[in-house]
Nucleic acid binder design. Structure first.
Length: 329
DNA sequence: TAGGCCATCTGGTCCT
DNA sequence: AGGACCAGATGGCCTA
């Protein structure tokens, strides 16, 4: 049984109209008044109206029965069949609608996994996911057009534009968490200690990047301008001697987030098994470095010594404080 | 308890 | 006619 019995649905839809009527959408009420004849004092559905019409018909039948007896006429029976069919179609439509919404939610979940902050335990709301995704695209575009390495703080501030305070905190928390992987050196510059944040969150086999599963667009080909970059290999080799994860979160997963850049982003993320444990959130640096033409002025360029593509300027004070500053004004 | 978020139902509209 | 899409309504759940 996919839905509640029809009668129950009717009951659900029969609260007094005035009692539940919005709230704030006066303008929409006008719109609704145009498209929907205003119900008197109920929000009965069309189906209930059908039922009412049936009842009315019954009453008319009863009234028209000169003998004072209930008479069932032909058309009445036909109407019952029709109503049954309407009910069935309505239930089928409900099932389709549920399925459609599930598909939409699946897509949204996929989106959650490729935006910079993902937690299985503390999911971003739908609206925040969309906002963050938009900001993320915007931030990456800005960075690419700027042609230089982004400042982490400004990058995150762009990410957090328009986001709610809780989401901002979450994103900032992601960065702070992963910022622990970075230690400032004596010059105040940033040196990386341990695996890069991305890698920490998404460990994968080096070979996976070359042959990403799913919708990879980046065939490794030396003739191509862009080619998928093997984060793992580069970072592992570069930070080989660095301290291990230490206290940073470590997620064991054979899954690989394939990220290829071929003029467009092609992101693939599969959820690490350990993801979300201990309330850890992942900040993934989804910029894709190349060794080709783009690399010339790109912040994604991987220098010969394989520096981390992001120039991280971690100040003494909390990143989160700075990010949150606009909210306190 | 109020408010936010979500799933579901529902009817309207558009398209095939 | 029927399906897809959309938006409004509603109730449940959760959290501050």
């Amino acid at each position: 049984m996919l839905t509640l019995p029809f009668e129950e649905n009717d009951m659900m839809c029969e609260p007094p109209f005035g009692a539940s009527f919005p709230r704030e959408n006066i303008g929409e009420q006008r719109k609704q008044d145009i498209s929907h004849p205003a119900p008197d004092d109920t929000s009965e559905t069309k189906e209930t109206e059908d039922d009412n019409s049936e009842r009315d018909e019954d009453e008319r039948d009863a009234c028209n029965d000169e003998n004072g007896q209930h008479k069932r006429r032909g058309p009445r029976r036909k109407s019952g069949v029709r109503v049954e069919r309407v009910k069935m179609r309505r239930q089928e439509a409900n099932a389709r609608e549920r399925s459609r919404m599930h598909g939409l939610n699946d897509a949204l979940e996929s989106l959650r996994k490729v935006v910079p902050c993902y937690s299985k335990t503390q999911k971003l709301s739908k609206i925040e996911t969309l906002r963050l995704a938009k900001n993320y695209i915007w931030a990456l575009s800005e960075t690419l057009s700027a042609g230089k390495r982004p400042d982490l703080l400004s990058f995150v501030q762009t990410l957090c534009k328009g986001l709610s305070q809780p989401t901002t905190n979450l994103v900032a928390g992601c960065l702070q968490l992963n910022a622990r992987n970075f230690l400032t050196d004596h010059n105040g510059d940033v040196a990386f200690s341990g695996r890069p944040a991305y890698d920490v969150m998404y460990p994968y086999q080096s070979s996976d990047m070359g042959t990403p599963t799913g919708h990879s667009t980046g065939t490794i080909d030396s003739t191509k301008t862009f080619r998928p970059y093997n984060y793992q290999g580069a970072y592992e080799s570069y930070y080989e001697g660095a301290s291990p994860e230490g206290s940073s979160p470590h997620f064991e997963s054979p899954l690989s987030p394939a990220m290829n850049f071929n003029g467009i982003f092609s992101l693939k993320h599969e959820e690490p098994a350990e993801y979300g444990k201990n309330s850890h959130y992942g900040m993934r640096y989804c910029g894709v470095p190349t060794r080709g033409a783009l690399a010339q002025n790109s912040m994604y360029r991987m220098s010969p010594d394989n520096h981390f593509p992001y120039d991280l300027h971690l100040r003494s004070q909390s990143i989160q404080d700075e990010i949150n500053a606009p909210f306190h004004n």
